[in-house]
Amino acid sequence: MQQLPLDIELHSDATFANFVEGENQLLLQKLDSICQGDNDFIYIYSEKGHGRSHLLQALTHAFSEQNPDKLIAYLPLDNSMLHPQMLDGLVAFDCVSLDGVDEVIGELEWQTAIFNLYNQLKEQGKSLLITGLLAPSQMKIELQDLKSRLSAMFIYNIKPLNDEEKRILLQKKAQERGLELGTDVAQYLLARQQRDLPTLLEILDKLDQASLQAKRKLTIPFIKEVLDL
């Protein structure tokens, strides 16, 4: 995998294996087909915390491992070091992922750069993935040709996890931290906290730190004490 001269770090734990797919099997199949050699143009949107960045980084890891002779680029568009001109050379890559297009889509220069990249990759039969908070039809895009191109991509809205799937995710994330989070404890958290994933993962981080400091396991009494429940 060729790296761009930027301070962009991929999370090593961003893999398809530790992504709880829920009802998003079709999207996972589409991403896997790219790793297998298919070319595709995919636009993924959802609220924050539903796994957009995780999936693009997982794709980057898997694509690189399965296609060592090909190039893939991952660009988180919230990186302040990025500028539109950096997209000019990305046509040399076999697969390009632009993560968080809503961060830059309000600027005409960025719109033009993304439009040009789209056309170049399409002409060469390569792959482009873009993520955002909103569907293309809901975004304010001055360059209508770009809006038309984005709308022509395979558009997928990530479906949120149900409570059972969130429990499984919490237990997976706890296990990655070396914590044992029993099913009853995970269910207790879901019953008494906000159920959006960013909040739940933030709570898990807090419990992880508290557990290390107190050298105690994650039990319901300990969680009550830490979270003042």
Rank of each mutant, 00 (worst) to 15 (best):
M1F: 14
Q3N: 10
P5S: 03
L6R: 00
I8H: 06
I8K: 01
E9Y: 04
S12R: 03
F16R: 07
A17T: 08
N18V: 09
V20H: 11
E21S: 11
G22P: 00
N24S: 09
N24Y: 14
L27F: 00
L28V: 04
L28T: 07
Q29C: 08
K30T: 04
Q36M: 12
G37S: 13
D40R: 15
I42E: 03
I44H: 03
Y45L: 05
S46V: 14
E47A: 14
K48S: 13
G49R: 00
H50D: 10
H50N: 08
R52W: 05
R52H: 06
L55W: 02
Q57K: 08
A62N: 05
F63H: 09
P68T: 12
D88S: 15
D88Q: 14
G89N: 07
L90T: 01
L90C: 08
L90E: 01
A92D: 15
C95Y: 00
V96F: 06
L98C: 14
D102W: 01
E103I: 00
G106V: 12
L108R: 10
L108T: 11
L108Y: 13
E109D: 05
W110E: 08
Q111F: 02
Q111S: 09
I114H: 07
I114S: 05
I114N: 04
I114Q: 05
L117G: 09
N119C: 12
Q120N: 14
L121V: 05
K122N: 09
G125Y: 13
K126V: 11
L128V: 10
T131D: 07
L133C: 03
L134K: 08
L134V: 04
L134P: 02
A135R: 10
A135N: 04
A135K: 06
P136W: 07
S137A: 15
I141A: 11
I141W: 08
E142I: 12
L143G: 05
L143N: 11
D145S: 10
D145Q: 09
S148E: 08
S148T: 15
S148N: 12
S148A: 13
R149L: 12
S151L: 13
A152Q: 04
M153R: 06
M153I: 12
M153E: 03
I155D: 04
K159L: 12
P160S: 10
L161T: 10
L161G: 02
N162F: 05
D163Y: 00
K166P: 06
K166I: 12
K166C: 13
K166A: 11
L170Y: 00
K173M: 15
A174R: 04
E176P: 03
E176Y: 07
G178D: 02
L181E: 09
L181G: 09
L181A: 07
T183L: 14
T183R: 01
D184Q: 12
V185P: 04
V185D: 01
A186C: 12
Y188H: 15
Y188A: 00
Y188V: 03
L189D: 11
A191L: 14
R192S: 13
R192H: 15
R195C: 04
D196W: 01
L197Q: 04
T199P: 02
E202L: 10
D205T: 06
K206L: 12
K206Y: 07
L207E: 05
D208R: 04
Q209L: 09
Q209I: 07
A210G: 09
S211K: 02
R216K: 15
L218K: 10
L218S: 06
T219S: 14
I220W: 09
P221A: 01
F222C: 01
K224S: 09
E225T: 11
L227W: 13
D228S: 13
